[in-house]
Design a protein around this nucleic acid. Structure first.
Lengths: 221, 221
DNA sequence: TGTACATCAGTGAACGCGCGTTCACTGATGTAC
DNA sequence: TGTACATCAGTGAACGCGCGTTCACTGATGTAC
């Protein structure tokens, strides 16, 4: 960071202000959810007039799109960092939960209720498969059949399906069993996590941490 | 239905119009998501003026609250009906998916991104535990230790936790293993389902139905 | 069966608000000679 | 080092819009005698 290089003071200031706008945007989203995001409200909170923000973002939609991108990026970095530090699947799972609890609305911006008309920018699919790639790296060593002769051969219809469509993991060359493991890891943890973040377990009097840890312990099969 | 009884024509008309307002509300939610729900827009679509709706709902919030209640009720009825017709856990799972696919935004109104300030009305927790009760009924016969002498004794910390806090299932007297099974059933299927409804699998080129069926097949452990 | 009254559905005007966005303009900051 | 010009951040007024909600009122429907 702080490469400075060709960065003029004006560019630095621009980047700084863009960053502050995003920060305030995240605060607003945390306080009222993404649909309540308002450029005018952000401007007011920053002590400037509404139209001023249009120097930094072409429209409200562009700002939201950027926030979504940043959310994906942040999650990918978190997962990759955990994987790089030698964490196993369970470790990645804990990193995921920590990241989600850190800002629930950021999690929901990625995995929450979709807005019927809107669809995420194309380039986030690349980041999404980067995330799945990190999961696959961690799923592989412990993969059920990773070191058996048949490692590359699917033994269930689902594994066959997954092996045929590998775009979601940027054509990662993991054995089918690992593909299945990684995907199941993701869907199961998302199940508990999204219910936790929405407060459903609290309403039921249950401890989400215990449910989550228990699910982590049963990832192998 | 059609009990008529003491129902005056005026009451009948009122009930009918209330129902039509709700129908239009669901259409709007399906088209633009819950945050885009507007009383004025509903009125316009029904060919009447905005203020007219205030004869039927005290406020926008009251309408939404009612829709949430109806969504819970509809899901509870669906699950109960499946259970009553002798479906096993997998059968309930398929009923759940059918119900969700029938109106994704209705599913998200219950299980989707929470609005930071808002909390669901108190009485829906009763319906929520009715749902869990139906799951437990179906989870019990096939419960791992349902007919062993130790049926009532938890054999994991999680089962102990679940057995101590049974409010979420209206104090249903199921053995701990069944509690764990039912809860896991719910969180895992919700994981796949919510990702499917949000379109994440489509973006990945995967077939949600196969993932779902595969997960259903692995519910026993 | 007919009249007098009460109930209630629906209207139209109005209030106050906040939204996204555009536009012409001021004033400060940087660049070129 | 100083002047002339271009760049660009930010302002304030304005546009058009839709929102939730209130209020006084009209007109139809039901009720009581």
């Amino acid at each position: 960071m702080t490469v400075a290089g060709k960065e003029t003071p004006r560019e630095r200031y621009r980047a700084q202000l863009r960053a502050e706008i995003k920060e305030r945007a995240w605060e607003q989203i945390a306080a009222a959810g993404a649909p309540g995001l308002s450029l005018n409200a952000i401007a007011k909170q920053m002590g400037m007039s509404g139209p001023a923000l249009y120097r930094y973002f072409a429209s409200r939609d562009e700002l939201i799109t950027e926030l979504i991108r940043d959310a994906y990026r942040s999650l990918a970095d978190t997962v990759s960092a955990a994987a790089a530090s030698g964490a196993d699947l369970a470790g990645l799972g804990r990193a995921l939960r920590t990241w989600a609890l850190d800002d629930p609305q950021r999690y929901f911006l990625i995995y929450g209720t979709p807005v019927p008309g809107y669809s995420a920018p194309d380039d986030v699919t690349a980041i999404a498969s980067e995330i799945m790639g990190a999961l696959l790296d961690a799923a592989q060593p412990a993969g059920t059949a990773a070191d058996t002769p048949d490692a590359g051969h699917p033994d269930t219809p689902l594994e066959a399906h997954l092996a045929e469509h590998r775009q979601w993991a940027a054509d990662h060359p993991a054995p089918p069993a690992a593909l299945r493991r990684a995907l199941r890891f993701w869907t199961r943890l998302h199940g508990i996590l999204s219910l936790e973040l929405a407060g459903h377990f609290t309403g039921m009097g249950l401890d989400p941490a215990q449910l989550y840890e228990n699910e982590l312990r049963h990832l192998t099969p």
